[in-house]
Amino acid sequence: MKKVQVSTADKSWDFVIREEDGQMLITQNGSDHPVDLIRLGQSRYSLIIDGHSHEIGVDGSFDGYRIFNGSRSEKFLVEDFELARIKKEAGIEDTVKQLNVIAPMPGLIIQINCSEGDEVAQNQPILVMEAMKMENDIKSPKTGTIKSIAVALGDSVDKGQVLIEFA
C-alpha cells in the first residue's frame, strides 16, 4: 500500500494505491477504483479505471511525469504523502510549483515585458521570442513574483533554457 500526493502547479490530489488478490485499486476520498495498467510500448500505456479505457503517454524526462491523456498533456509531481506533508510544514516548495519560465523552442529574445520583483498573473505575456519566423508571446505559467530574469534582449536561447525564475 502506498499513499501519495499528486500535484500540478495549482492543484493536488491524494491517492492510496494497494493490491488485493492481484487486483490493483486506487482510492480517492474513500472510494475504491479498480485499475488495470498495461504497458504497450516504451512510453505508452493502456489504462482501464472503473471500466473506462484510456490511452496514456508518459514523458519522465524531468522531475515528475508529463502525462499525455487523449490529446492533452499535463505535468505532475508524485510524492510520498507523508514526505509532501512534512515538506509543506517546513515551507519547502516542490519543483512543479516553482515552475521557472523555460524556452519552449530555440529562438531570439526580442522583447522583455517584466522586471525583477514584478508580480505577474498566470498567462500574462512576459517575453517575446522570435522563432520559426514568428513572434511568440511567452506567458507566465503561474501567478507569482519574478525573482530573476536570466536573459537579455537579443540573446539567442536554446530549447529548455531557463528564461525567468520565480521567487
Binding site: 492543484k11 495498467l37 502525462i67
Partner: peptide, 11 residues
C-alpha cells in the same frame, strides 16, 4: 484521470 495515471505509473 491523468493524475491517477501518474500515481499508478509511479507506483
Amino acid at each position: 484521470i491523468s493524475a491517477m495515471a501518474a500515481a499508478i505509473i509511479d507506483y
